[in-house]
Amino acid sequence: MPNNIMIAGCGNIGLKLAQALSSHYEVYGLKRNASLLPPEIKGISADVTDPASLEGKLPSSIDYVVYCLTAGTFNDEAYRQIYVDGLTNLINELKQSSISPKRLFFVSSSSVYHQDDDQWVNEDSPVEPSGFSGKRLLEAEQVALDSGIPATNVRFSGIYGGHRTRLLQQVKNGSANANSQAYTNRIHEDDCVRVLKHLIEQDISGKNVEACYLASDSEPVRMKDLISWMTKELNISASSENKPASKGKRRAGSKQCSNKRLIDSGFEFKYPTYREGYGEMIARIKKEEA
């Protein structure tokens, strides 16, 4: 029998993951209005922040759970409700329904790292976030690890691709800070989907799956160098050329994310660096504007 996989949160990444898995597995998608899901995904209409809405809604058998929700607003309360309380509510409902998944995957972020001195970080690096977003995500990671279900936290770095075109638009309109010396770490949305699918299938095949993976592409880059490359590819003048070098700290700090553990697991990137990912997006923009 095929494995049953439930994806809590069917936004861009969750929905793409559900569709990528649906041809080989029984896939359930949990979201507030599951009627919006395509027919190949079995919908579960529930709100993880409301425990009552989850009661009796889950299928009797779930082999894998992927918690892939996104806070609607960037504030501490929203992050607590979605990541900490929501995950806790879902785990409690699994227990109350006597459902024992083989593994829980929690989608986290590299914002749990506090490092701001250009150093390399990996899954074993200290995590002492000062911002609420990193603190709440780290708290939720611990909820997953303490759940009694084998759990894996996947820390994605700066996600781009699909509808995530903010930096490209900033470069085009000249508002990007072309003098920022901070390192930025990137991963394409499609590779986020492929990472999660890869780890699920590693577990299904009986291969070792670690409790944490840092998922970022293979080339951290200084923001000024990324923007310089973009301006050349877009054939536009340098962005923010008259702005002074940034003195304030970026919310994401300045660190270099190592993907060695992920690569060692056998994962291969579709977009190994920003050049392939943003290059494809820029080519599409040029075609649309031609």
Rank of each mutant, 00 (worst) to 15 (best):
K249L: 13
D264R: 11
G248Y: 05
H24A: 14
I62E: 01
D124C: 11
R103E: 08
P38G: 08
A211R: 12
S45E: 06
E189M: 10
K31R: 15
S265Y: 06
G158Q: 02
N179R: 15
Y113S: 04
I91P: 01
S35Q: 12
I7K: 03
S45W: 08
V127W: 04
C68E: 02
T273Q: 06
N12F: 15
R194D: 10
S157A: 13
S265H: 11
P2A: 11
M223N: 15
T152M: 04
I282W: 02
N89C: 07
R194H: 13
P39A: 14
Q81I: 11
F267D: 01
K232E: 11
T184L: 05
E128G: 09
R250S: 15
Q81D: 08
H198K: 12
D63F: 00
S130Y: 10
Y79I: 07
N33C: 07
K197Q: 15
G86P: 04
F269V: 01
P51T: 04
A151I: 03
T231N: 09
G134T: 04
K31H: 05
V66N: 00
K31G: 00
Q115I: 05
G14I: 00
W229T: 03
F74A: 15
I159Y: 00
Q202A: 14
S246N: 15
S254Q: 05
S239R: 03
Y271R: 02
T184P: 05
H114A: 11
F105W: 06
A283Q: 07
E189I: 13
L87M: 10
G206D: 04
C257H: 06
G253E: 05
R261E: 11
Q169N: 15
T49I: 06
V209D: 05
I13W: 03
N75A: 02
W120F: 10
N177Q: 07
I62Y: 01
V112E: 06
V193K: 02
C192T: 04
E233A: 11
V27S: 03
S246A: 15
C257L: 12
E268C: 10
A18D: 03
Y25F: 13
S180V: 00
R164D: 03
R155E: 07
F74L: 13
L37D: 01
A46W: 02
F106N: 00
G266W: 06
L36W: 07
D76H: 11
Q96R: 11
S53N: 02
P129T: 04
N75C: 06
C257E: 05
S100T: 13
L145G: 07
E289C: 07
G43I: 01
R275A: 10
P2R: 09
D63T: 05
G9M: 06
A144R: 00
G162I: 04
D116Q: 13
P51K: 07
